[in-house]
Amino acid sequence: MPSNLRLYVRLPNWVGDVCMSLPSLYVLQATGLPLTICARPWARDLLAGVAPAQDFVPMRGAWRADRAALRQQLRERGASARDCRGLSLPDSLSSAAVFRLAGIPTAGYRDDGRSLLLRWPIDKPGTPLHAVESWYYLTRKALTYWGLPAGAEQPGPALGLTPTADQGMAADAALAEAGLARGGFVLIAPTATGLHRGRNKVWPGFDALTRRLQAQGIDVAMCPPPSEVDEARRNAPSARLLPALGLGAFAALTTRAALVVCNDSGVSHVAAAAGARQVTLFGVTERDRTGPWSRDAVCLGSSQHWPAVEEVEPAVLALLQSTEAGAKDGATAGAAG
């Protein structure tokens, strides 16, 4: 095993998937070896609080440019590709090909004809796993092949995303500008990117739920990215619209809300990673595969049927009441102490 070994990890291309790959990232960091994260440009901001010291090479989806970026980084570090080990978490041909063309020997799942591109092709587990477990399994297998410490057998119960202090300040500034108190509002995410097997991934009850909560004096806010503002306004026109935030600041914002209500989407996984309380709504996706990895998440619906507003509203109110009760108990205990 080379004494100057360097590790390279290709993270998935979607926000939620990057969040679900955090346990894999942590076990790679725990080796103590130099680690380079290769991911979409936005992932740098999302991971700023958990991987500030790691090299980052943006992957833009154009294989020639991505290969050139990796080779440039190798030159800058004075590293030889033969002394590197790559891990490709996505199943795509392109993610494995970029590492191969950059000369980095790589481990990854044996899928879609990728075996010829991988030095260490790994069979997927025979039993279907949650995405967090699947990527963690792959990571541990690769580390074992490389003779490196592979960490605990199972990922922990929390994803452990910690925004930076600046990201927390940005979230607080957005709330102050909107006149919202920390813990005094429900954050909804009434959008979702793309379709799942031709089906809309957005719960159709956001408008009705928002109006019902507002009628009870509960502030409801949303903070979509600029590209989703119009859709958010259509789906929940009476919700308060906050200015768009970077992913790290948005993660901090989820922890400032009393509750996050969202589809099974990137927002659900960001909220789970940051440790926010949430209600995640399913109608087209499988919660056992892509549900939020969090003990603080309530999941409603199924892959075949969205939950009704009449089911979601009482669940939201019960969680809000338990939050208020917990806050009062904490305040009472503090006063007694």
Rank of each mutant, 00 (worst) to 15 (best):
R44E: 10
M59I: 15
A53L: 03
D66I: 03
L47N: 02
D45T: 11
A39R: 00
P41R: 09
A69C: 08
R64F: 15
R60W: 10
M59E: 12
R44S: 11
D45F: 13
L35C: 09
R44K: 13
L46K: 04
R67W: 14
W42M: 04
A43F: 09
G32D: 11
W63F: 14
P58T: 05
P58F: 03
W63L: 05
G49K: 01
R64M: 08
L70N: 05
G61P: 05
M59L: 15
P34A: 07
P52E: 13
L70I: 14
W63V: 10
A53G: 08
G32S: 07
L47I: 14
P41I: 15
F56I: 07
A65F: 07
D45V: 08
M59W: 10
F56K: 00
M59S: 03
V50P: 00
P34Q: 10
W63D: 05
A65N: 07
R67F: 13
L46D: 12
A53Y: 09
I37Y: 03
R44A: 14
L33E: 00
W42Q: 04
A62N: 12
D45Q: 04
A43I: 03
D45W: 11
G32Y: 13
L70M: 07
R60M: 08
R60P: 03
I37G: 05
V50T: 08
P52K: 07
M59R: 02
R44F: 14
L70K: 02
P52V: 13
A43Y: 07
A69N: 09
G61F: 13
D66W: 01
W42I: 07
I37V: 15
A62C: 10
A69Q: 05
V57Y: 02
A39K: 02
C38L: 12
R67P: 08
